[in-house]
């Protein structure tokens, strides 16, 4: 692709990542974090980066928010190069790091005021954008940020990341350490922000959150394993999936795993999910009966977690 092509691509995408690589450490003790990752995010998209701890999600976010220089590759955010045009990027992205990093000894209002001012704007100007989120913590606006509960801290951090009306929002593991109800609420908030036209990149270690995104990329050990819409990923799941449960789940799992027809078996809620090598499950079920293990079995519809577990197994 020529230079013109790169420029065109930058204009088309809110985030464009081309072959980005990054290693930590020096000389003998090098830890690679990213091995040449490429993907594009369309404007207004809610893009999920799913992967276990240590997959390289934070490193990628830090490169895209101009906090870290990549070793190789290029990337652009909102049409600006992350290395050369970092100043323009800093004006138009919002970043919410995984760790709460607002001033704990300033109040809720002071924190929001502070971040509004250093972006040369004011709370009033962009109140409509943060209203839904900020309204929930406004009753505590004179409380020190350090004294807020986890869920409220998260809302404040999101408000502060939004107060300058960014065009691209980076959320690094925003739901880690947040209770199930707050997590659900949080994703509702993201959907509303998406409706405002903000491009959102969110990283999470929770596979069940993948279904909330427009598109997801599965990342592991610094490599992208798969990238598609959640429904397309589920559609690609080609093998037969069974759900089994019984009175003695541990013996059952061990017995299932010992059978040759089984590609993979893992606990999944109150069932064990069993991925078969072939479409015929009678061999396995007969084998369990012969061994006198009580169980009930049913066909299972694969969801995104099943897909990711398979993808990660294959990669290893």
């Amino acid at each position: 692709m020529g230079n013109g092509g790169v420029k065109l691509k930058r204009k088309m995408y809110a985030v464009s990542v081309n072959n980005i690589a990054k290693s930590y450490g020096a000389k003998k003790n090098v830890t690679p974090a990213l091995h040449g990752i490429s993907f594009d995010v369309k404007p207004g998209e809610l893009f999920g980066l799913i992967g276990p701890d240590g997959a390289g999600k934070t490193t990628l976010f830090r490169i895209l928010t101009t906090l870290l220089l990549p070793d190789k590759g290029t990337a652009s955010v909102d049409g600006f190069d992350v290395v050369n045009a970092y100043k323009s990027i800093r004006r138009r992205v919002g970043y919410m790091p995984g760790r709460f990093s607002l001033y704990q000894d300033l109040t809720v209002k002071e924190n929001l005021d502070f971040f509004a001012t250093i972006f040369n704007t004011s709370i009033e100007k962009n109140y409509d954008l943060v209203k839904d989120i900020y309204a929930q913590i406004e009753p505590f606006s004179n409380r020190m940020a350090g004294k807020l509960s986890g869920g409220m801290k998260q809302k404040l951090a999101l408000s502060c990341a939004l107060i300058h009306r960014p065009s691209v929002l980076f959320l690094d593991e925003p739901t880690t350490g947040v209770d199930a109800v707050s997590r659900k609420e949080f994703w509702e908030m993201l959907k509303r922000l998406k409706a405002e036209g903000i491009t959102i990149l969110v990283s999470t270690p929770y596979m069940d959150e993948a279904g909330m995104c427009d598109r997801v990329a599965l990342i592991q050990s610094g490599r992208l394993l798969e990238m598609d819409t959640p429904s397309a990923i589920i559609r690609d799941f080609s093998k037969k999936l069974l759900a089994l449960k019984g009175p003695d789940m541990l013996t059952l799992l061990q017995a299932i795993r010992s059978h040759k027809d089984v590609a993979d078996a893992y606990p999944f809620g109150e069932f064990h999910h069993v991925v078969l090598e072939q479409d015929d499950e009678s061999g396995l079920l007969g084998y369990l009966q012969d061994n006198g293990i009580a169980f009930e079995a049913k066909m299972a519809v694969p969801d995104i977690e099943d897909c990711f577990i398979q993808l990660m197994k294959e990669e290893r």
Partner: peptide, 9 residues
């Protein structure tokens, strides 16, 4: 917090 400041202009 310095990281949060660093991503601002």
């Amino acid at each position: 917090t310095i990281e949060q400041i660093n991503v601002t202009p």
